[in-house]
Structures are given as structure tokens and as C-alpha cells.
Measured scan of single mutants.
Amino acid sequence: MEVRTIKVFTTVDNINLHTQVVDMSMTYGQQFGPTYLDGADVTKIKPHNSHEGKTFYVLPNDDTLRVEAFEYYHTTDPSFLGRYMSALNHTKKWKYPQVNGLTSIKWADNNCYLATALLTLQQIELKFNPPALQDAYYRARAGEAANFCALILAYCNKTVGELGDVRETMSYLFQHANLDSCKRVLNVVCKTCGQQQTTLKGVEAVMYMGTLSYEQFKKGVQIPCTCGKQATKYLVQQESPFVMMSAPPAQYELKHGTFTCASEYTGNYQCGHYKHITSKETLYCIDGALLTKSSEYKGPITDVFYKENSYTTTIK
């Protein structure tokens, strides 16, 4: 009895394709271990004539594949690729409408935090270190965002349907971005203890939790000093293409032309909904596939993004 075979390709990165001759009487799992086709788990399936010449994702289970996976995804987590594939199996079914010149995501599976993050990423200057993220990001900007969303979920250790947080998501993504040249110098002034300067680099240099107003941050924000008295913390120097200011959701007025974009969060910790506000020729609110415009805006804002380049204080 002759062994019926077909020729397929296996890959971990969709760049390096490895030619395989597979036995049609055995499952993919018996031949390769966990195997995925377009995100779908085909591990328990036997090869079919229609699979001839198709590319299958496999887990990096030998040295060659491990090197290829690390170079593309910059992670050695053995569960990463499987999590990416199972997320992709959902995100490829989502709709990605162009809204006001940006790629958004039609609401499904509690994905409003991903839509808000995706919209924000198209408006701030950011370059990702893992080629996987950078490639998928370019495709997302062009309207094909399924891979990018699935990668975000995998890097953030999230599953489809789980509630997510924009600030946490951005923080994970910033860790995989090139923020080497970003720098922030802060000064804390206390009447009792004097003053202390701190220099922050990388992710810490672009994120701040405690106030939404970048102007206020430049002037000074009140913080408790270690001595128990009130101290003032203010920005001395900022070198970065953008800054992200966050605070627990509270009524906040966004003035046209003073910011790049913002995240609105309605609801409580267990259950809520994100919308995205962007400042173009007027203010726009993007909620999944829905767009509304207004000249002014007041609502429960939790993150505001500002364009920056270089700032030095005039406070002496």
C-alpha cells in the first residue's frame, strides 16, 4: 500500500517557510505537534488534498525554529505562539472599519479597549522592536488589523473576551517599542525636605499616572512627601515624541487643539466601556464603527496623549 502524501510549508514567522512532505494517514499533531492554519487549530486533523502548498504555523520545537521565533517575536515564552494563534482565530472574524481616516474595530468580545489602543497607536510616533509587531502594525494602518490585535493580546497575556485596560495595554506595548531616546527629568520640591531631581528613561519617561493635564504637570502637581507634608512635583525636561497622561476616570474637559487623542471610560472596574476622542479640525468621538463630532467635550476621561518633541522648564 502506497503512502499518500502532500507537500506543505511549516513556519513560526510566515517569513521562513520549511518544506514538509506530510503523510495523509496521520494527523498534523502526530507529525508536527500543535499546528495552526489561519489561526485555526488543526492539530487533530489529517492532511487533505486542499492543504497542498498551504502554510501551517507550528510551535518552535527545534533550534532553527526557536531562533526564527525569537528573532521575529522577541520572546522565548513557549506558550506565546499558541496564544497568538488562538487569538487570531477570533480577531480574523472582527470587522476593521476605516473611521475618520483611522483603522478602528467594530465592537465584539469586549474589544473596546483594543480599538482605543489601536486608534491611539496610529496617532503617536512609535516604532516597535519585534519585527512581528512592526509588520502587523503597518498592515493594521492599511486596514488589516487582525494579526496586530492578536499579537497585542498575546504580548499582554490576554484572551479574547476578557476586559482590558488601555493604560495597561499601552504599557505592555511600550515595553516592546523603541523608547531608548526618551528621557524625563522631574523635580520634587518640599518646604521641609528641599528639592530632589529624578531622571527617568524609556517607558517611565512617557507615562504618568495622577493627572490628565500635561500643562498642569509642567506647572506642578501636589504629591505627598515622605515627611508627610505636601510637596510639588513638576516637569523639568521632556525628550520624547509623545507623552501619555493618565488618571482614574473623572469628568474632564478636553479643549480642541490642546491634545492629540484621549480615552474615555464609562462604567466601573468590573464592567465598563471605552471610547476614543481625537482632536482634528474639530473633536471626534470614535466608538467602534461609530463616529460623532463636537466642538467641545466633557466626560469621564482616563488617558490623554500629547505630541511632544523637546521641553525644558522655565521655572527657576
Rank of each mutant, 00 (worst) to 15 (best):
H273P: 00
V21G: 11
N89F: 12
N129V: 08
P131I: 03
R184C: 05
C261W: 00
K127H: 11
K229A: 13
A146M: 06
M24H: 07
P130T: 09
C156A: 07
P131M: 04
Y265T: 00
T103Y: 12
F148R: 02
F56V: 09
Q122C: 05
S50A: 13
A69F: 11
N89W: 08
N157G: 11
T27H: 11
T314C: 08
N100V: 06
T120P: 04
Y274I: 02
R66W: 09
C190L: 01
L235Y: 00
R167Q: 00
T19P: 14
Q196P: 02
D63E: 14
T103S: 04
C190Y: 03
L212N: 03
G39Q: 09
F242W: 09
A136L: 03
N49Y: 13
T55I: 12
G33H: 05
T76I: 14
C227K: 01
C285K: 10
K280E: 11
F70Y: 10
N100T: 08
V22Q: 06
E281S: 07
H74N: 08
C190N: 02
I315G: 12
I152T: 09
V12Y: 07
L114I: 11
Q238N: 02
S279P: 05
Q98F: 08
D38T: 09
D41R: 07
D135C: 07
L283H: 00
D13N: 14
K229N: 15
K93W: 08
K191T: 14
V304A: 00
P78E: 13
N178D: 12
T55P: 08
V12E: 07
G288N: 07
A247S: 08
S50T: 12
T27K: 09
G228D: 01
A205H: 03
Y138R: 14
T11M: 06
L37V: 09
Q98D: 10
L235I: 10
H74S: 07
Q237N: 09
S171T: 13
N129D: 08
Q197V: 11
K218H: 03
K201E: 09
T10V: 13
F174S: 02
D38R: 09
T226D: 10
Y72T: 07
S240Y: 02
Q216V: 07
Y138Q: 15
C285N: 08
Y208Q: 06
S25P: 06
E239F: 08
C149R: 02
A145R: 02
L212T: 07
M209V: 15
Y269Q: 15
T116L: 06
G288K: 02
D109S: 06
